[in-house]
Amino acid sequence: MSNPDNQQPASALPPPPPPTPRSGCLTALMAILGIFMLLPGLCALLFGGMSVVEDGRIAADMAPLVFLGLVVGIGGAALIWAAIKGRKAPPVQNGR
Rank of each mutant, 00 (worst) to 15 (best):
N3W: 03
Q7F: 11
P9M: 06
A10Y: 12
A10K: 08
L13D: 05
P14M: 01
R22L: 02
G24E: 00
L26C: 13
A28P: 09
M30Y: 00
M30R: 02
M30D: 10
L33A: 15
F36W: 07
F36M: 13
F36H: 01
L39A: 15
G41H: 01
L42Y: 11
L42T: 05
C43M: 15
A44D: 00
L45F: 08
L45W: 09
L46V: 09
L46I: 08
G48D: 03
M50I: 15
M50G: 04
M50W: 13
S51Q: 04
V53D: 14
E54M: 09
E54A: 12
E54N: 04
D55G: 08
R57G: 02
I58F: 02
A59L: 06
A60Y: 10
A60E: 14
D61M: 11
A63C: 08
P64Y: 00
V66M: 03
L70H: 03
V71N: 00
V72K: 02
G75D: 10
G76F: 02
G76Y: 03
A77R: 11
A77H: 04
I80S: 02
W81Q: 06
A82C: 13
A82D: 08
I84T: 15
K85L: 13
K85V: 10
G86S: 03
R87H: 08
K88T: 09
A89I: 04
A89S: 06
A89G: 09
P90Q: 06
P91E: 15
Q93W: 10
N94M: 08
G95N: 14
G95I: 14
R96E: 08
